[in-house]
Amino acid sequence: MTTTWTAAALSQDVPAGTAAPGRLGDRDLAIWRSASGKIAAWADRCPHRGMRLSHGFVRGEALSCIYHGWRYGQTGQCIKIPAHPGLEPPDAIRVPAFAVAEASGVIWVADGAPATAPPAFEGFTGFRSLQVDAPASVVAEALGGKGDAIRAALGPTPAVALIQPLGPDRSGLHLLAPLSAAPEALDALSVAAEDLRRRAEAGQKGRAA
């Protein structure tokens, strides 16, 4: 049980009215944002027949499963079963929901209730997420740092790198860029990030060989 925050996605990658897949430890998540902008992170599985809710559709303040249209409100409570339109679903039918918070353009998730708010990085905001086929420690090393939040200059641009373990040899890399960064600086950051990914993956292959 982790009660610390994990960076799971960037706010800009889950716009209002959409759902996207995410991870928390070894669990799959459906991260979605309502029409009014509220974010939620749930188990990525419809309790009815196991369809991934990250493939679902958002209408208003509810997420519906794409398979049979079972509809769930903000807290994960089932509010509509279309095959049985006269039925008011019981409280018992709900999708497990995780703690979720946004700061500096990052969507943070946790299992349980962390004692503190997720970290904010003054002057920075979410820029780009990448997946890297290398463990978190190798990605951190390639960034010249340690841990899961590293301040580093990538090319000419200062950045914050949040590293999310996605399994033994896969990581998510969520990059934050200065709010004031010019478009050219962001382009350079993108190029540097892809170079970093190549180096981390090459380093990983070298180790495995």
């Binding site: 990525d44 309790p47 009815h48 027949r49 369809m51 991934r52 049985h84």
Partner: peptide, 25 residues
């Protein structure tokens, strides 16, 4: 196919203890 490749678990459960079948099922 977009449904079938995204159901959990991949195999068909013969125990519905983690599902909620209704009369429609």
């Amino acid at each position: 196919r977009s449904i079938l490749e995204n159901q959990i678990p991949a195999k068909l459960p013969l125990d519905p203890g983690l599902e909620i079948p209704t009369r429609a099922d």
